[in-house]
Computed example of a mutant assay.
Amino acid sequence: MPTAAHPLSDDELFAWLGLVHSPGLSPGAARRLLAAFGSPEAAIGAGPGAWREVAGLAASQALLNPALNPDETFARTRAWLAEDPTCRHVVTLGDPTYPTALLQTADPPLLLYGHGRLSLLERPSLAIVGSRHATPAGLDNARAFAAHLAQAGLVIVSGLALGIDGAAHEGALEGAAAGGTGGTIAVVGTGLDRVYPKRHHALAHRLVDGAGLQLSEFMLGAESLKEHFPRRNRIIAGMSMGTLVVEAAVQSGSLITARLAVECGRDVFAIPGSIHSPQSRGCHRLIKEGAKLVETADDILHELRWPAAPAPAPSAGAPTGREDPVLAAMGHDPVTTDSLSDRTGWPVAELQARLLELELDGRIARLPGGLFQRRAAA
């Protein structure tokens, strides 16, 4: 059973929603009102003169002329909570279940919506982020690192985006299912009554039904607006002990998350990749700037001084002997059939047949442009 947030009365919920979701009222102004009056109810009831004195004219005008219908916002939120009261929550600043690490950041959300295992907020967590246009090797790495770290007891935080985020959530669920005490938190840029991207609808439901939690500061009904995602990223970075970037282009939201982690005083880790891959250049830049280069999940556990995960039992089908000659010739960069033929001396027809076998075995991936690349486990 999930840990429950402190239950809010209808009056408390109405006041919190009115304070947090008043258009034109900045988070900073809302925090000043809370600090001055002690509670949302007292702040809302203080009146225009007090609002203006504490938070300025713009804040007073925002509270006097809300663009949203507060009754409708309250009714929608109350109904959403009532549909599944054990797994749906509103967590306010100062609630015992509010993430402690997030409280230590410069701009903690005043209110969070949660759906799933709220107890995950009380556990140490690590963010895993990266490219939406990840390579097969990047997806394998994200999944494998997340599974290992979740099995060691860490909660994996990511943003439910396509690519690396989704692979990280999948891996964390696998690690938890394999007996790990960790799980995964998806911090999203929409209201929790929506799933974005739609391709992750099934993953979002598996996450909530299993060892996971969805988290958002955006009101129910909020759509996936461009400006929501930098705010989502500050939560991902702020609630985590560190951030691992798996793959990222130089101009990437993942690098923004890494920068936010540095600003919060948290560790940043990066997995190096091919010097020829655009998706490795962001990680290489982070490493040049001081991020910790990691090659295994245990590298991260060592840096965090966290106990290692239990060693998995050896697989009965584990390969033995020399490495496959085609894989050895392939290396770890994308390569064409012609280049492989030159390296191995194999005829192209024979090589294509072997490449198909390796692809069906899941040991290599076929990339656009007639390229092949070995997968992370190969």
Rank of each mutant, 00 (worst) to 15 (best):
T3M: 10
T3F: 08
A4I: 10
D10F: 00
D11W: 04
D11Y: 06
L13F: 02
F14D: 12
G18A: 13
L19T: 14
H21V: 10
H21K: 05
L25F: 13
P27F: 06
G28P: 09
A29M: 12
A29T: 15
R31L: 12
R32L: 15
L34Q: 07
A36I: 03
F37C: 03
P40V: 14
G45Y: 07
A46K: 03
P48S: 12
A58R: 12
Q61G: 11
Q61C: 07
L63H: 08
N65H: 15
A67K: 12
A67H: 04
A75T: 11
D84A: 15
P99T: 12
L102V: 07
L103I: 12
Q104C: 08
A106P: 06
P108C: 10
P108V: 09
L112F: 00
L112M: 03
H115A: 10
G116N: 07
G116Q: 08
R117L: 05
A127V: 13
V129T: 07
S131R: 01
A134K: 01
A134N: 00
A134M: 02
P136Q: 03
A137Q: 07
G138Y: 04
G138W: 06
A142D: 02
F145A: 01
A147Y: 07
A150F: 06
Q151K: 15
A161C: 12
I164P: 01
H169I: 02
A172W: 09
L173N: 01
L173A: 05
E174G: 02
G175N: 01
A178D: 14
A178K: 11
G183I: 11
T184C: 11
V187T: 12
R194I: 13
V195N: 02
Y196C: 04
P197R: 00
R199N: 13
A204G: 12
Q214M: 15
S224C: 10
E227R: 11
F229Y: 08
F229I: 07
R231F: 00
R231C: 01
G242D: 02
L244G: 00
E247L: 11
E247N: 09
E263C: 01
R266T: 06
R266S: 05
R266H: 13
G273E: 10
I275A: 14
S277I: 14
P278Q: 12
Q279M: 15
C283Q: 08
C283T: 13
H284I: 13
L286R: 02
D299W: 02
E303L: 05
L304T: 04
R305C: 12
A308Q: 11
A311G: 10
A311K: 14
P312W: 15
A313Y: 14
A316G: 10
A318I: 04
P319M: 09
G321W: 13
E323Y: 06
L327N: 09
H332R: 15
H332M: 15
T336N: 13
T336E: 14
D338R: 15
R343M: 04
R343F: 02
T344M: 05
V348H: 11
A349V: 15
A353W: 09
L360P: 09
D361T: 11
G362L: 05
R363I: 04
R375W: 00
A378T: 01
